[in-house]
Each structure stands twice: as structure tokens, then as C-alpha cells.
Design a protein around this nucleic acid. Structure first.
Length: 156
DNA sequence: GCCAACGTTGGC
DNA sequence: GCCAACGTTGGC
């Protein structure tokens, strides 16, 4: 069964353009247990909505897909790094990351404001007030609505 | 195990 | 820059 997800990223630190030029990346740096559990549930072939947060406008910028299930996130072992976790060990890692690849960049970002206006998307985790979860499950129906909106977008 | 203080996320 | 919503931390 294919599952659907949404991951958030600040384009200033890692944007859909970065993913496009890299081709694929390990989704490192997530340090929230609920989000981690979702990352561990991602399977090869799952579809991923790529969301730009803290940007203008905030919204879904494109699509990615899962190409490898989660492995230990190496950034937790990097003493000098921003994501170092002193409680993590190689034997017992705390944090995991799947690998995702670039699929497509939408012609325009589908803004959060527009998503909120869509009836069929009212129950998305993203739309919940104060939702800070950086990795979220999405239903197939929600994914299809987003894909349909993306298809209807005109070139800039 | 409770809960107050504090830090972070992220839209606006 | 403001602030609501949460997650985390640490004293007790």
C-alpha cells in the first residue's frame, strides 16, 4: 500500500530547488518523536508533498518520493553539528531518516491560504491551528486534490 | 508524576 | 515583531 506524506522545510535552509539539483537526499535533522515515527513508517514508493514553511507564501512547492526506508540519522552523532544528540549512540540511535528524491516542482507554490479554502482539505493536519508537526501523514484523497490543483496551475 | 518556566515553530 | 500552540526540561 502506497502511503502519502507531507514534509516541511524552510526554503532558506533546504528548498525544493535544492532537492531538484541534488536529485535525492536523506531527510535528516528531524528531532520530534511524533515526526520521527512517521519517518520510520515511510516506505519506498510513497508520495511526499514538499512544503515550504517560513516563506512567502508558505505552501506546497512540489512533490518528492521515498526511495529508501529510514536509517540512523548520522547528524545525531556529529558533536559539532546543529543536530547533535548527546543521548544517542551508534548502538542505540534515537533519530532516523528516509531517503527521498525529487519528483516535480509546481509551477507556483500552492499557498497555505488557498489550501485552507479548499473544502476537501479542511481536515489536513497542516490546516490545524498551530500545527507545528514537520512530518505528517496525508490521505490519498488529500494528495489527489493537491495534485489536481497543481495540474491546473498556469506557468508564471 | 506534576506542572511552571522556557524554547521553538511558524503563520500572520 | 507578535504571539498561539505545543514540546521539553527540571525542580519538587
Amino acid at each position: 500500500m502506497t502511503s502519502y506524506w507531507l514534509v516541511k522545510s524552510e526554503p532558506g535552509s533546504y528548498s525544493i530547488d535544492d532537492l531538484r539539483s541534488e536529485g535525492a537526499t536523506w531527510w535528516t535533522g528531524v528531532r520530534n518523536y511524533q515526526a520521527r515515527n512517521f519517518l520510520q513508517n515511510m516506505k519506498k514508493g510513497d508520495h511526499v508533498l514538499f512544503y515550504h514553511s517560513n516563506s512567502e507564501p508558505p505552501g506546497i512547492a512540489g512533490l518528492a518520493s521515498v526511495i529508501a526506508t529510514a536509517e540512523a540519522d548520522e547528524t545525531q552523532f556529529d558533536r559539532k553539528g546543529e543536530y547533535f544528540d548527546p543521548k544517542a549512540t551508534k548502538e542505540k540511535p534515537r533519530w532516523f531518516c528516509p531517503q527521498i528524491r525529487f519528483v516535480k516542482e509546481f509551477k507556483q507554490v500552492i499557498g497555505l491560504a488557498d489550501i485552507k479554502k479548499q473544502k476537501g482539505l479542511a481536515s489536513m493536519e497542516l490546516v490545524r491551528q498551530g500545527s507545528r508537526l514537520s512530518v505528517q501523514p496525508v490521505t490519498e484523497q488529500e494528495f489527489e486534490i493537491i495534485a489536481a490543483i497543481a495540474k491546473s496551475l498556469k506557468d508564471k
